[in-house]
Design a protein around this nucleic acid. Structure first.
Length: 577
DNA sequence: GCCGTTTTCGGCCCGACTGTTTTCAGTCG
């Protein structure tokens, strides 16, 4: 898969072009770079299928860029890129991490001081050479040095699950202020993206200066990047940046729409506004100079001819077109997304019988408190010693224990399940005879992550064809920022899943979120059902359900697509083979 | 460089903040 490699090169080409001129040419490259980053198909496959002509069917890809892609696929390099890089051989990735350094300034630094990377930059700044340059000054030099220190400890993007509680704490702190009339999370946190680069917060207040003063001195702030009347930006010690914007109440909806993004989504909505002879900015929708919408998001969308679009969908991957069609009267173009309180039971839960830490009884009580109708105990059945996997004998014993707990704890039903290892050849670690006594069987791959695509696909397909398998846990095996997971022929997996009525799990664990959003969307399209499970290992895991639901929503899933949003009866009925 | 129910040429989302500058370019989101 060369998508990401090409995307990276195009992004750098955009920077190099920007060094020479503020041009739309660089934007064209940047746009395709982003497009490739989110493209689910393998661009190489597309090329081999239909050549340059096929490539040019994608938005933003024309003659020149298609040629570049072709060149890379065939020769593994792009001459135009190499020429640009030769002119200014700098480590863009490193230098662009420094706040305030963009393409133009990086070029000046290279030309005047031969600065190529962070090391050169630090040396020059410490020697006081940067402040002497035209366009730079004492302050720039100081900021660069501070920024280098911060970049050294940079942790990259944060898991949504880690950042959410922190953001909610910040929000609650602001809510205490009398000057705050209204407050909302915005940006990628509001869109519930699985990883988050920085945090955006929007406040309605008529006393913006006071809010800003409070913001930049909040506990944990280690650097103020910018502080203005309506907009400020800081870095927290935890390692993330936080942007705060304050607007008047008449602009709240427009500001929220603008500040939530995504960038691509915003560009599209603004273009649509222009087509309608309107202007959309963060203060409202304007007809000439008259504000015609802005108080809330719904009216903002409506005023430019769109149906309201949920934040999780705002990625410019078809939601705007769907919204447009729906606004024009076609039904059900946008999904009626599953809601955050639609889940009726947990379907992936480990107890102290394997590698979980809580007893079945305790887990049952917690699940009941949450309001679940049912809880499936799915301890590992695996040869791996470290997780104390169950064998046939212990599964039968556990069935008795669950019967006992069901007697004792009322108001919730504990279902008998297992997470059984799928062996390298696709067969299961537990005999069918024992599996047949369980309510719900999850199949999972826990070893051999380096399989090739064909092997991995065949392995899963064989498991899905076992009549006792009800669902596949964390189907791709990826761990965010750690492990890619095995490659799968996903369309093929979906075909078999549909035929065998095997559900695919959306594992809600903050580090997994597997299925990915694009796969969920494909599953929804072909009608393959899913479950959302948090992979409980202790009682704190239950709350990650929110992340799994967010993932499902970003994959356009409705309630009907998610099996454990059904009542106990319907859930069980689905799996009656 | 890309693209077209206003166009095959002339547009391309829009505005805040900073620093270095005396009116604005660069950066950021």
């Amino acid at each position: 898969m060369k998508n990401l490699e090409i995307a990276k090169i195009f992004n750098e080409m955009a920077d190099f072009i920007e060094m020479k001129e503020i041009s739309f040419k660089s934007r064209a490259y940047r746009r395709v770079s982003r497009f490739l980053n989110s493209l689910e198909q393998d661009i190489e496959d597309v090329y081999y299928k239909g050549g340059v002509k096929e490539l040019k069917k994608f938005p933003g890809i024309g003659e020149a860029i298609a040629g570049n892609i072709e060149e890379f696929i065939r020769t593994n390099k792009i001459k135009a890129y190499q020429r640009l890089k030769k002119e200014c051989p700098v480590d863009l990735g490193e230098l662009k991490k420094i706040e305030g350094l963009g393409a133009r300034k990086i070029k000046i630094l290279y030309e005047k001081l031969k600065i190529k990377n962070l090391k050169n930059l630090e040396k020059a700044a410490k020697a006081g050479k940067i402040g002497e340059l035209d366009g730079f000054g004492e302050k720039s030099e100081k900021n660069i040095l501070q920024s280098i220190e911060i970049a050294k400890s940079d942790k990259g993007r944060f898991l949504l699950g880690r950042i959410l509680p922190i953001v909610r704490k910040i929000i609650n702190e602001f809510k205490e202020l009398p000057e705050v009339n209204k407050i909302s999370i915005a940006g990628s946190v509001r869109r519930m993206k699985e990883t988050v680069g920085d945090v955006d917060i929007l406040i309605v207040s008529s006393k913006s200066e006071k809010i800003m003063d409070y913001f930049v001195q909040m506990k944990g702030v280690i650097k103020v990047w910018a502080k203005g009347k309506t907009k400020s930006s800081v870095r927290f010690r935890t390692g993330f940046d936080c942007d705060l914007r304050v607007v008047k109440k008449d602009s709240f909806g427009a500001a929220l729409q603008y500040f939530t993004g995504s960038k691509e989504h915003n560009i599209m909505t603004r273009r649509i506004a222009i087509k309608n002879k309107l202007k959309l900015n963060e203060y409202g929708v304007y007809n000439k100079d008259k504000q015609i919408a802005g108080k809330n998001e719904k009216e903002v969308y409506k005023s430019i001819g769109l149906q309201y679009i949920e934040p999780e969908l705002r990625t410019n991957t078809g939601e705007i077109e769907a919204s447009l069609r729906q606004a024009q009267g076609e039904l059900n173009q946008l999904p009626k997304l599953i809601k955050y309180n639609d889940i009726k039971g947990e379907t992936h839960c480990h107890s102290d019988w394997s590698d979980g830490s809580a007893t079945i009884e305790n887990l049952a009580k917690i699940a009941k408190e949450i309001g679940y109708e049912y809880l499936v105990i799915t301890d590992h059945a695996s040869p791996l010693g470290i997780i104390h996997g169950l064998n046939e004998e212990r599964i039968l014993k556990q069935i008795e224990e669950i019967d006992r707990v069901n007697q004792k704890v009322s108001g919730i039903t504990i279902l008998k399940g297992v997470e059984v290892d799928i062996k390298a050849d696709g067969s299961l670690f537990i005999e069918d005879k024992v599996l047949s006594q369980l309510d719900f069987v999850l199949g999972a791959i826990h070893s051999g992550f380096k399989m090739d695509k064909k092997t991995a696909t065949e392995r899963l397909i064989k498991a899905m064809k076992n009549p006792h398998i009800d669902a596949i846990a964390h189907p791709s095996g990826r761990v965010i920022q750690k492990r890619e997971g095995y490659q799968l022929d996903f369309p093929e997996i979906l075909k078999v899943a549909k035929k065998t009525k095997t559900a695919l799990e959306i594992n809600a664990h903050e580090k997994r979120l597997d299925l990915r959003d694009i796969h969920i969307r494909q599953a929804v399209e072909v009608g393959v059902k899913m479950t959302i499970g948090t992979d409980v290992h202790n009682v704190n895991y239950f709350k990650m359900m929110e992340l799994g639901i967010a993932q499902a929503r970003r994959g356009w899933a409705e309630r009907k697509d998610i099996l454990n949003s059904s009542s106990l009866d319907n859930f069980l009925k689905y799996f009656k083979k």
